[in-house]
């Protein structure tokens, strides 16, 4: 079942188009990553789906409910907006209790305290948020997004501003949420984090989605060649040279010596052909390594 479904969703400010017609489906239980450079339109897109910003045109459905009836499902949706500022004179606990009450969730004080402990705010439960650092505000933002056990959670850069240890703890927490069959829609500038957490990824560029799929699908979509390195030992150097010349006829050999052959191939099935050629000239093969493009490579080359 599609938890999020958008049809030609657009947003313009005056004459400037920020989101230029997005069609997207996010399935139940997914951790969906949304990537893009600053100003690509990610936050505007999330803000439309969460009711903060109104679409210029197009439609969307959240948990089966259309955008003009969004209020009906707000109690099932948790949101961490991009800008997390709180009521300065209220404590972290008071915030959680207040936000839970707005959504008419029955949450005990102990449950709120447990949640604050889970996001790493154990020592700041009774501290007023005006004393919070940016990272602490992010943690409280995540806590308020998941209070009341929502089915769908939007997280706009959940680990930005956090120290590496806290960021890892937060990633663990997000994984725990996903294991409870919650759908998570997140944006992040940390590509490594997205690669580790997300089951599917969309890359947004200038208001449109330029890439969409699993990491493997994106790698296939964006890769031109696979770099393959073979560690070897030729028993007959002359025959090995001949084989290398034959391989070079149909691949691009980048480097070779008597211990290693590095070549670029179009498809992984080509590896078998190279191995076959090398074995025919009595060359021992110790290891084969292929380098697929990382998410960073895809993102940077997009």
């Amino acid at each position: 079942m599609a938890v999020i479904e958008t049809v030609d969703l657009k947003k313009s400010y005056h004459k400037h188009s920020v989101v230029r017609g997005i069609n997207l489906q996010v399935q139940e239980g997914e951790i969906f990553g949304f990537l893009g450079r600053n100003g690509a339109g990610k936050t505007t897109f999330i803000n439309m789906l969460t009711g903060i910003v109104l679409p210029t045109s197009g439609q969307f459905r959240i948990l089966g409910v259309s955008n003009n009836q969004l209020d009906r499902v707000k109690h099932k949706v948790g949101v961490l907006p991009d800008y997390t500022e709180f009521y300065a004179n209220d404590t972290a606990l008071e915030h959680l209790q207040f936000f839970a009450k707005i959504q008419k969730h029955t949450v005990t004080k102990q449950q709120c305290m447990d949640l604050l402990e889970q996001v790493g705010l154990k020592d700041a439960i009774h501290v007023k948020t005006k004393k919070f650092s940016f990272g602490m505000k992010k943690k409280l933002g995540v806590a308020q997004a998941v209070i009341g056990n929502p089915e769908l959670i939007f997280l706009d850069e959940p680990t930005s501003g956090m120290d590496p240890e806290s960021a890892l703890e937060m990633q663990k927490f997000i994984r725990t949420l996903a294991s409870q069959n919650k759908t998570i829609f997140m944006t992040s500038h940390n590509l490594n984090e997205v690669e580790k957490l997300c089951s599917r990824i969309a890359i947004m560029k200038k208001g449109i989605i330029s890439g969409l799929g699993t990491i493997e699908q994106l790698q296939k979509q964006f890769q031109t060649n696979i770099e393959t390195t073979i560690k070897l030992f030729p028993k007959n150097e002359a025959s090995y040279r001949q084989a290398r010349d034959e391989i070079e006829n149909w691949t691009s050999v980048k480097y070779w010596d008597n211990h290693q052959l590095t070549t670029e191939i179009r498809d992984e099935s080509d590896i078998a052909r190279i191995v076959h050629s090398l074995c025919n000239v009595d060359t021992d093969i110790f290891a084969i390594q292929t380098n697929r493009p990382s998410l960073e490579d895809i993102f940077m080359n997009d």
Binding site: T50, K74, V77, V79, P81, F86, Y87, F99, Q103
Partner: peptide, 9 residues
Amino acid sequence: TIRFLVTKT
């Protein structure tokens, strides 16, 4: 802070 309110009610 209205962004928190508007996403909840």
